[in-house]
Amino acid sequence: NEAEQSTPVLFDGLTEENLQFVSKLKDSSSSCAVDVSTVWWEAAGCRELCVVTACENSVSLWKPLAPDHWGKVYTWQLGEIPVIQIIPLLDTCNLICIALGNLEIGEIRLLLHSSENDSFKQSLVKTGNIKAVLGLKDRRLVSSSRSMQEQEVEVVSFSETGRSKHGQTLMPPEETVLAFAEVEGVKDALVGTTAVNSIVVWNLRTGQLLKKMHVGYSYPASICHRAYSDSGLLFVVLSHPHAKESESCGNPAFRVIAFNPKTARSTGVIFSSLPPGHAGRYVEGEVKDALAAAVLSSGAIAVWDLLLGRCTALLPPGPAGGWALVRWGAAGAGLLAGRGDGSVCLYRYA
């Protein structure tokens, strides 16, 4: 029944189903899914890719029991501050990072399992008026926060057991940083998008602010999702929650822009717009490699191939209600789609 409700709609005469329903998770004790992610978890010498679901006041870890079936391993109960998001930490095992707050992030916590006394724990990483946070390679976390007039951009690293090490400060730009992306192909390069629609580039090793480049006025409040360097150009994948519809490019959800970091000049490479005839706009989404997925204001989820610049699949809202969030799982785990009722569906994308 669930599979029937969630059958993807295909576009442009595609004959192969590239998004297939796999399984569903439903936490009977929770009513609202805030976020979902995947994490590598090792127990009794067995390392598995598990699913993490977050509700406002708890975070649950699910392990695969049998094909298409999941069992809850543990639920961390959080305090009075609601969970806002799960922050994926790349290449880590047995570590889950979460952001909590009211409207804005007020604190970041680590959820972990201690093998010393075989117990599940949580620890406080950072508090403040946090505007943006991203998990980086090598068990690091970068965040931007504001105190009065000052902005702090800080990188914190963790040990394998989840202990926070000494943080490094990056030189902040004048405007507030709203999103980060590591630059693939250039070790130690980090980019961010700011409240006045600029791209900033840092050297993570030295903390230097290397460049500030304006995105343009046509696409306000752009958010960076991915960045990579190729042939001397910096390619940045941006989403445009507030972009206006135009005749030339439709209703753009994602855009790839090529910047020349030496001159700060840029050119648009490819647009990924909402499917033709689909009403509504981009609400939130995620990019993994050349694939982008987003929840639309209609309650549907759209998937794009960013290299082709076109929508390849659409999950309609269905009778059970609209989709609330969408994430890409690690290691080919496919698409994780959450509904407002707390259920999470897994889809294979091929």
Binding site: V186, D188, A189, V201, N203, T206, Q208, L209, L210, K211, S229, S231, G232, L233, L234, A258, N260, P261, K262, T263, R265, S266, T267
Partner: peptide
């Protein structure tokens, strides 16, 4: 290497900007 719209391109842009930017 150069592009008429983007200006002169450098494959070592990260190292060059790091040597030019204030510490």
């Amino acid at each position: 290497c150069s592009d008429s719209d983007l200006g002169p391109i450098s494959l070592n842009w990260f190292e060059e900007l790091s040597s030019e930017a204030p510490p």
